[in-house]
């Protein structure tokens, strides 16, 4: 059992990637009560945005130069897709039946996947993603893989930026007001249509950073990569209390840790030997989702529904 600290760190790193993507679900839901199920594909396009920058750069560019540019590429592509989705897919349906945006989201997801599959060069199977060099790094008994170093830095930085934005800037305050009471926010002078666009865009920024992290961690990007990761991130958002931005990150960390621990240790329990290993990891993630929905549907940090005005 002395590998426990290692598993814990693995879980938290995986979870912080879930958390980065979960922020997009939770922000959009908090503002317009819409589950943007195409968010996983927005994440995926971010990954291809980063890859595209790498492919355009002259061969032999070091990652320390390339990586910042790749992040910018990922952010540009993902926010463009997200803003486009809001403007042309979701906004026309606002005020309509609640099922309409959900169906649209599924259609949009498939369209984005197929577009990348069909048009991105050689994307019919996974494409290799450039890797950081150096490492791995050892801290005591714990090893941090080179690819994970990015997450270790990016996740806390992203959370700090987000907290500052939401609490300390005028637009952030307008965003909180819109989430709590959109009509009254308008009376205060908040342009709520603009706030909705910003929520989509900001969610895409964090998803794009998450996609770069994914590429560095797994060494590939893939037109399907947004499906499962999107579902996990959505699970994280629900786990943390959907609508709560800190909850999204905490939900991600809990989910990543629980999934990693279950994968590593559940087969040590007598009678459950068959349930160990990576192939069961996703099962544990969704078992956790079902448990949360059953016993604490408002999530870890969520308010009870009655508290929402």
């Amino acid at each position: 059992m002395n590998e426990l600290p290692q598993q814990l760190v693995n879980g938290l790193l995986l979870g912080s990637m879930y958390g980065l993507v979960a922020i997009g679900y939770t922000m959009v839901y908090g503002i317009v009560q819409l589950i943007n199920f195409a968010h996983g594909e927005i994440f995926m396009t971010g990954g291809f945005g980063a890859l595209s920058v790498w492919l355009i750069l002259p061969g032999g560019t070091t990652m320390w130069v390339a990586l910042p540019l790749m992040i910018i590429g990922a952010v540009l592509v993902a926010t463009t897709v997200a803003i486009g989705a809001e403007r042309f897919a979701y906004r026309p349906l606002r005020g309509g039946p609640r099922l309409a945006p959900l169906i649209t989201a599924i259609g949009l997801s498939l369209a984005l996947q197929q577009a990348v599959w069909a048009w991105y060069p050689e994307a019919k199977s996974a494409r290799t993603f450039p890797q950081l060099s150096g490492g791995p790094f050892h801290i005591g008994n714990v090893t941090i893989q080179t690819g994970d170093v990015f997450l270790l830095i990016a996740a806390p930085v992203c959370m700090a930026v987000l907290a500052y934005f939401v609490n300390r800037t005028r637009t952030g305050r307008g965003m909180q007001a819109t989430a709590q009471d959109p009509d009254t926010a308008k009376l205060m002078g908040v342009n709520t249509d603009r706030i909705i666009v910003i929520a989509f865009a900001l969610g895409a920024v964090f998803a794009a950073v998450g996609a770069v992290a994914y590429g560095l961690k797994y060494g590939i990007v893939d037109y399907k990569m947004g499906f499962l990761l999107g579902l996990k991130a959505f699970t994280a958002a629900v786990l943390g209390g959907i609508g709560n931005i800190y909850g999204a990150m905490i939900g991600g960390l809990v989910l990543g840790t629980a999934e990693t621990m279950a994968t590593a240790y559940i087969n040590h329990i007598p009678g459950m030997q068959q349930l160990g290993g990576q192939s069961w990891a996703d099962v544990w993630a969704f078992v956790l989702l079902i448990l949360v929905l059953l016993f604490r549907p408002q999530g870890l940090l969520g308010e009870r529904v009655a508290d929402r005005a």
Binding site: Q176, Q180, D181, T184, A309
Partner: peptide, 9 residues
């Protein structure tokens, strides 16, 4: 009407 303050701020 109904005040509509922002309750969580």
């Amino acid at each position: 009407e109904g005040r509509h303050i922002f309750p969580r701020m």
